[in-house]
């Protein structure tokens, strides 16, 4: 049993109006020192078995096929300890 985390982020060149809105809200709330915000998605996948090479290869396929739209998004995969 393992938990695998897939983080999905808009590619750097893709405009992120949500992140921009958050960045603009921070100073209004008295927070300073943040020059930019990008918003992404985090998926937590509970695997039936261990996070071995085969399982991670499957997760990669899941990410490419469904979790991320690789036209506009990048993803990264990691196993949660």
């Amino acid at each position: 049993m393992a938990r695998v985390i897939v983080d999905v982020m808009l590619k750097p060149e893709i405009l992120d109006p949500q992140g921009q809105a958050i960045a603009r809200a921070l100073p209004r709330l008295g927070f300073s020192g943040v020059s930019g915000v990008r918003q992404g998605k985090r998926f937590e996948l509970e695997l039936d078995g261990p996070a071995d090479e085969a399982a991670l290869s499957d997760v990669r396929k899941m990410a490419e096929t469904l979790l991320a739209n690789t036209v506009i998004e990048d993803f990264s995969i990691r196993v949660e300890e």
């Binding site: 992120d16 109006p17 739209n69 036209v71 506009i72």
Partner: peptide, 11 residues
Amino acid sequence: LPGALTRNEGL
């Protein structure tokens, strides 16, 4: 079709 549709610029 190529490309994607994303969040409107002005939200």
